[in-house]
């Protein structure tokens, strides 16, 4: 794979069926180091399925995935995270009734002898959260007391702390107030500054357009277009998506 040393993820000819529905139909996608890519497409175009394959939630029926040039089989979400792929879901994947620190480390808890939680290490979650500019007062606060933007920040902070190479953001600005949208877009810029690649999925083209380097357009399970940011505008993207 010497010809593309900079690609951190390459998906080749990915297929996924749900019963008779061909949700992903031979999709190809490359994500380079530190690059932010907007993944666009109408409802049912296969965006969610494609990224759920990359994040280990689903297994592809056909196709290959290369991580930093090496052919890899991602069996589970833990596998994906061990490979440096962190996903921030629409639903944020947080548990409201648990504290910020417990949510932050969920599934990857730092432990001492015998599997008991290392509370001091867990409280380190405040470092990336403060770095993102969040003013959460204590790691013991329940997630239910956070605003929508703070919740996204917590989920994005996980990616910073665990040194992800690629962060997948699935509709991160949905159901947020105008001000919170700006906060979340700033978080994404923070990821770029840390040289972390980003896949940003959104229906709101303005949000995507303001922060990504490249657009990938999915239609009926296939990648139909690739645009550099300079080559296109929000209006042109809308047109491509509509026809």
């Amino acid at each position: 794979m010497n010809e593309r040393p900079q690609a951190i993820v390459e998906m080749r000819n990915i297929h996924k069926w749900y019963g008779k529905v061909h949700a992903v139909d031979g999709a190809n996608m490359i994500i380079n180091e530190g690059e932010s890519v907007g993944l666009l497409g109408d409802n049912g175009a296969g965006k969610s399925t494609l990224i759920k394959i990359l994040s280990g939630y689903h297994r592809p029926d056909e196709g290959e995935i290369f991580i930093e040039g090496k052919k890899t089989i991602i069996k589970s979400t833990s596998d994906a995270r061990a490979l440096g792929i962190e996903t921030v879901y629409q639903e944020q994947a947080l548990v409201d009734l648990m504290s910020v620190a417990r949510n932050f480390h969920m599934g990857r808890e730092p432990v001492k002898w015998g599997g008991f939680l290392n509370k001091a290490k867990m409280n380190e979650c405040m470092i990336p959260l403060r770095a993102l500019g969040l003013s959460i007062k204590s790691p013991d606060f329940l997630v239910s007391s956070l605003s929508g933007g703070e919740k996204q920040g917590t989920a994005i902070g996980r990616a910073l702390y665990f040194k992800a190479k690629l962060v997948i953001l699935d509709e991160p600005t949905r159901a947020l107030s105008v001000r919170e949208v700006q906060t979340v877009l700033d978080f994404v810029k923070g990821l770029k500054e840390a040289n972390i690649a980003v896949i940003f999925i959104s229906h709101t083209l303005h949000h995507v357009h303001s922060i990504v380097d490249r657009f990938v357009i999915l239609k009926r399970g296939k990648v139909v277009r690739n645009f550099k940011k300079g080559e296109t505008s929000v209006d042109k993207l809308t047109e491509v998506l509509m026809d």
Binding site: S55, S78, Y89, Q92, A93, G107, R108
Partner: peptide, 11 residues
């Protein structure tokens, strides 16, 4: 508390 979230986080 949230089974889907727990699953997504690898539990």
């Amino acid at each position: 508390g949230n089974r889907e979230a727990a699953k997504a986080m690898g539990i």
